[in-house]
Design a protein around this nucleic acid. Structure first.
Lengths: 228, 228
DNA sequence: GGCTCAGTTTATCGAGCGATCACCAGAGAT
DNA sequence: ATCTCTGGTGATCGCTCGATAAACTGAGCC
C-alpha cells in the first residue's frame, strides 16, 4: 500500500513496517487465523503469524474485539465490490445469461475457505452484521432477480415479491450456497464444474418460477395438498 | 430414565442423582451449552447449569473432549431414528408423497436451534463424524431418492447415480437445509409454512429431474453453454 | 553527532481455563 | 447404630488468555 520509505530494498528479516502496513497486515492475518480457529483464536498465535510480539497488536487496535470488527468489515464488504446491480438489471442481455454470470461472479467471490468459514463463524455469533448481510442478499439480490423474472415473464413488476416467490428464490440461492459449504467447509467431493452446477440450478429455478407464475397469474396460488 | 430409588418424592433441592441420570444430564446440558457458546464453552458454566460443582464432571468423563464426543454422538444419531429407509422406499405410495413426508419428518428432527448449531460448529471443526454424516446423507438419502426417481420415471435403476444427478439432489437438499439455517441460526424471517416450502422445493426438483432425464435418456447430457 | 519520535519488545497482571486430589456426607445394608 | 460405598465438594495446580506499562531501538531531521 502506501509505504513511506521510498523503495528501499526490503530486508529479508523485515521489521518496523509503516503503521498502515502493519495495521492491514494484522487484519489480513487475523482473517486467516480466525477463519481456521474461530474467533477464539489467540492474539499470541496471531502475532506469531506476523513474526512480531503479542502486545504490538494493542498499538493498532484497542482490543481484540475491535480487530474482529475490522475482520468482519473486510470479509463482508469484499464480495460487494462486483457491481451486481449493473449485472442483474442490464435488460439488454437475456435474463438467463445475466443470472448465470452473476452467480458465477458472486460465487467466485465468496466460495473460498476463508470467506465461508468467517461467514459461518460470525453467523453463529448472531451479530448484527450477519443479519444485515442476509437482509442485503434478500433486498439486493433475490428481490432484484425476482423482479427481473417477473419482467421477463411479462408479469406486473410489483414493488415487493410475494413470500412464496421469495422462498423459492431463497431455496435456489441456498442450494447454490450449500455447494460452497460442501466443497470448502466439509471438503466433500462435489461436481467440479461450478458453472454447470449453477446452470442446472438455474434451470430448475426458472422452470419453478414459470410454473408458479402460471398457476396463479397474479395472486398467490392455492397450496397443493400432498402430504400422505 | 432408570432411577434406582423406588419413586420417593423428589426433593426440591435435588442432589445425589444416580450415576446414569447424572451422566445423561451432563450430556443434555452440555449440548445446550455448546450449541450456544460453541465447544469453547466452559466446564464451570456447564456445572452451574446443573447446579453442581465443576470437578464433578470428571467423575463421569475423563476429559472435556470425551464429553464433547458424547454430545456429537447424541446429536448426530438423533435424527437417524426416523426410519427413512422404509419411508423413502415404500413403493406402494406415490413418490411425491413419500418425498414430502420424508422431508417433513427429517426437518422436524433437525430444524431446531440446538441441532443446527451443534452441526455447524462441529462441521467447522472438520471432524470425521461430520464427514461421515455428509456421506450418510449422500448414500442413505440422496442416492435413495434418485433411485426412486429413476424408477418412477421408468429409467434404468443403475447402482450409482450420475454426478450431475447427485449435484441436482444436493442443491435441492441444500436449499431446504438452508431454510433451517435462515430460520434458526440467522433468525431471519422465513415463509412460515414449512410444508409448503418443502412442497415448492419438491416441485422444482422433480421438474428438474424430469427435464434432465428427458434431455439424455440414459447418457450424461451435453452441457448447455449459457454464460455470456 | 545527538535529538526525537514512532514502531517494537520485555515483563507482568488478573482472570479463566481444564484437570487433580483429598476430603465430605448421606443413603442402604447389616 | 454403625459401616461402607459412592455421589459430591473445596482447594488448588499449571497454563493460556487479553491487556497494560515501561523500556528499547532505529530511521529521519537538525
Amino acid at each position: 500500500m502506501n509505504r513511506k520509505t521510498p523503495l528501499k530494498r526490503v530486508r529479508t528479516k523485515q521489521k518496523r513496517l509503516s503503521a498502515d502496513d502493519r495495521r492491514s497486515e494484522f487484519v489480513t492475518k487475523a482473517t486467516e487465523l480466525f477463519a481456521e480457529e474461530g474467533f477464539g483464536g489467540g492474539t499470541r498465535a496471531l502475532a506469531r503469524k506476523l513474526g512480531v510480539t503479542q502486545p504490538l497488536l494493542y498499538r493498532y487496535f484497542p482490543s481484540k474485539d475491535d480487530l474482529i470488527k475490522e475482520v468482519y468489515r473486510k470479509v463482508y464488504l469484499e464480495p460487494l465490490e462486483i457491481g451486481w446491480e449493473r449485472l442483474l438489471s442490464d435488460r439488454s442481455r437475456p435474463l438467463r445469461a445475466r443470472l448465470q454470470e452473476f452467480y458465477e461472479v458472486y460465487t467466485d467471490a465468496i466460495f473460498n475457505r476463508r470467506w465461508l468459514r468467517i461467514y459461518l463463524y460470525s453467523g453463529l455469533k448472531g451479530l448484527d452484521i450477519n443479519r444485515w448481510y442476509v437482509g442485503m442478499v434478500k433486498d439486493k439480490i433475490l428481490t432484484r432477480i425476482l423482479r427481473e423474472c417477473r419482467h421477463d415473464a411479462g408479469l406486473a413488476t410489483q414493488s415487493r415479491p410475494s413470500a412464496a416467490e421469495l422462498e423459492l428464490a431463497w431455496v435456489f440461492h441456498g442450494g447454490i450456497f450449500y455447494y460452497g459449504v460442501r466443497k470448502y467447509i466439509y471438503e466433500a467431493p462435489v461436481l467440479e464444474d461450478k458453472a454447470q452446477m449453477i446452470s442446472d440450478a438455474l434451470d430448475i429455478f426458472l422452470a419453478g418460477f414459470e410454473r408458479m407464475a402460471e398457476s396463479a397469474t397474479d395472486r398467490r396460488r392455492a397450496p397443493i395438498k400432498v402430504v400422505g
